[in-house]
Each structure stands twice: as structure tokens, then as C-alpha cells.
């Protein structure tokens, strides 16, 4: 698969134009001139929070080329610490410094192959625009959305148009099938007859998906969330242990050489 070109990011002042609570998540729609235009599925943005030096990395969930506010992008927040809580509380009209789009995007297959997309919680966000790109290429897309419980499940309704099938997994069985990705991914892969697996979410979900792909002889790409301070490649603070193309162990920056990498390249035990 070709390595996607890296597009030049911009640093701009964005504005919240819509905010909506969905279960335990907060969906924000923002303007960020130049960012939606450059976006590729798998990119993220880094957002500044007043009084905090570190940036907050957020997957881009969708972009609209035009709206009443011009081009916009959506992010899905799960408020946990100080920064995500601050962001989730921002009203319409609030201004937020945004850098993006950042990171390597998902590589797309050249041929119309069968793809399994696996995403857990808010981190399923980048799989939706990915599904659309794959669909445009004639790929058969099977989407798996998982979560600990229903409140943290990203609704697959919007994706239905782009995908052949949707599977819902919750750990507590509150909706869909009960269980974790690791329990079901081999079977899902077989059913989808997938040539490529794309996975986003916590490391254990990615590792299970990459391992299942390897067992089935499929390719995998995983979107990793390594704790990121700047998100822009400047600080070298986001070490991602990988095996290089040449078979040599390396530590690369997750925010520039990732966050999307081939699943079989990650040294999971060193993560």
C-alpha cells in the first residue's frame, strides 16, 4: 500500500460552531481555516487549552466542505482530565487554537478489497471518514464499533450508508453483542473475509486486531494513542517502538511517523 503523502499542517484560531452531548461524549463542530481542506482520514488535531502547556490530541471525526460557517470539522470528546473537560464545556462562539491536520493518515488499498474497521469508544471517530473513502474505491466495508457500555459507543447510524455491515460490541452487553474486541475479532474477520483490518482505540484492541489480521494473512493498520505533548513532532515526547522496514528495532515519534502505522510493525511489549 502506498504511504500517504504528508500534508502541511496549519496553526489557526478555530471557533466552536456547534456542541452536542451524546451519551458520555461531547461532539464539537469547529471552524479551523485550512484544516478541513487538508484533512485525510486518520489525521488528528492538537488543541491548546488556556493555562496548560501541553496540547490535547483529538481525532478528526468528519469534515464538511461547506456549511453556514464555511468548512468545519467535528471531534468527539470523552472528558477525563483538565483539558478535555475544559474543551467539552466550551460554548458556541468560543475560540480555540488548533493545529492540524497532523500525523500520518490511513493508507488506502489500491484495489477494491474487503476491509474490516474496528473502533472502540470515541476512538472509532476516524473510521467514519475512512469508511467513506474506502466505499468510494469500491471496497466492501464491515464496521465494528465497541465500547465498555452504551454511553461510550459511537453511533454507527451515520456510517450505514458507507458500510456493508455494522457490528456493535459492548463489554457489559448493554447493547449489541456482549464482549470485547479480542473475543470476537477473529470471527468478524473471517465473516468479512477481510484483506485489510483498520483499528483504533486502546492498545489492547489494536494489538488483538493486528494479531488476528496476521493470523488470517491480512494487512493491518492501527491508529495509536501514545501520550502526546506537542502533537507536532517538535518534542520527541511520544516514543513509539516499532520494527523498521529493514527489520531493525527503532523508536519513532507517534505523532509524526504515526499515529497510524502497520500493526505488524509495532513492538507491543515495549509500548
Amino acid at each position: 500500500m502506498p504511504v500517504p503523502e504528508v500534508r502541511t499542517p496549519v496553526h489557526v484560531e478555530g471557533e466552536v460552531v456547534a456542541t452536542k452531548r451524546v451519551g458520555a461524549h461531547r461532539h464539537l463542530t469547529l471552524t479551523a481555516p485550512g484544516v478541513p481542506e487538508r484533512f485525510r482520514a486518520g489525521n488528528f488535531v492538537a488543541v491548546s487549552v488556556p493555562g496548560h502547556v501541553a496540547r490535547r490530541a483529538l481525532w478528526i471525526h468528519r469534515v464538511r466542505a461547506s456549511s453556514a460557517f464555511g468548512p468545519t470539522l467535528d471531534v468527539v470528546l470523552e472528558a477525563r482530565g483538565a483539558g478535555t473537560s475544559w474543551l467539552a464545556a466550551q460554548p458556541v462562539g468560543a475560540r480555540v487554537p488548533i493545529t492540524g491536520p497532523l500525523g500520518r493518515a490511513f493508507a488506502l488499498p489500491k484495489d477494491a478489497v474487503s476491509c474490516l474497521l474496528v473502533g472502540e469508544g470515541y476512538a472509532a471517530a476516524p473510521l467514519f471518514p475512512l469508511a467513506e473513502r474506502l466505499r468510494e474505491r469500491g471496497c466492501a466495508v464491515s464496521l465494528v464499533v465497541s465500547a465498555p457500555d452504551e454511553s461510550r459507543l459511537l453511533s454507527a447510524l451515520e456510517a450505514r450508508r458507507a458500510v456493508r455491515s455494522v457490528t456493535v460490541l459492548t463489554a457489559d452487553g448493554s447493547v449489541g453483542q456482549r464482549g470485547r474486541v479480542a473475543d470476537h475479532v477473529d470471527e468478524l474477520l473471517r465473516r468479512a473475509d477481510a484483506d485489510v483490518v483498520y483499528a483504533t482505540g486502546p492498545a489492547e484492541v489494536l494489538r488483538a486486531s493486528a494479531a488476528a489480521a496476521e493470523r488470517a494473512g491480512a494487512w493491518s493498520q492501527v491508529g495509536l494513542e501514545v501520550s502526546a505533548l506537542c502533537g507536532t513532532g517538535l518534542c520527541h515526547g511520544c516514543p513509539l517502538p516499532v520494527v523498521g522496514e529493514d527489520g531493525v528495532d527503532r523508536v519513532v515519534r507517534a505523532c509524526t511517523e504515526g499515529p497510524v502505522v502497520r500493526g505488524d510493525r509495532v513492538r507491543w511489549d515495549a509500548l
Binding site: H52, V53, S227, L229, G237, C238, P239, V251
Partner: peptide, 18 residues
């Protein structure tokens, strides 16, 4: 040099520790 294992940086009031 590969650098240290993570976490390499942490945010603190007024700055960061690396």
C-alpha cells in the same frame, strides 16, 4: 540514542517536566 522510555514529559503548573 533511542531516548528514554515513556512517559517522557508531563505537564505541571507553569510548564512541563521532561
Amino acid at each position: 540514542r533511542a531516548g528514554g522510555a515513556g512517559p517522557r514529559l508531563v505537564e505541571v503548573p507553569g510548564g512541563l517536566v521532561n
